[in-house]
């Protein structure tokens, strides 16, 4: 599976080892994130997007589905998005829904 998670300073850091977060992996990504919520010890998550060069609507759907699933509990932050991914977030006003930070470290430190 192209997803990995580790714990750091009370956060679960999830990284995606793929350059495209599109329809071919978005559903398994969603399931992976839901598992983290249901079985994970922490509902504080940071998603490391540094390797993702392209994201489509299904990838966006997986992230928002996770946010909905959390139902206002805990936190879901995004880190290290590349320019094309940031463009998609801008177009879709995702900054209204997510905290997006330049690096994982800053995401952890952000209060």
């Amino acid at each position: 599976m192209p997803f990995e998670s580790k714990s750091e300073a009370g956060y679960t850091i999830i990284s995606i080892d793929e350059t495209r977060l599109d329809a071919s992996i978005s559903e398994s990504f969603r399931v992976y994130l839901f598992d983290q919520i249901e079985n994970g010890s922490s509902n504080m998550m940071v998603i490391d997007l540094s390797l993702v060069r392209f994201m489509d609507s299904s990838g966006l759907g997986a992230l928002v589905a996770t946010l909905k699933k959390m139902g206002g509990e805990g936190s879901l932050k995004l880190a290290a998005a590349q320019p094309a991914v940031l463009d998609l977030f801008n177009l879709t006003s995702m900054d209204k829904l997510f905290t997006i930070l330049p690096t994982v470290t800053e995401a952890i430190e952000e209060k």
């Binding site: 609507s57 966006l60 928002v64 946010l67 909905k68 801008n90 177009l91 879709t92 006003s93 995702m94 209204k96 829904l97």
Partner: peptide, 12 residues
């Protein structure tokens, strides 16, 4: 102009 896609979050 911005805007969150329809159906993502209520109250937009």
């Amino acid at each position: 102009s911005g805007g969150v896609p329809i159906g993502m979050m209520p109250g937009m």
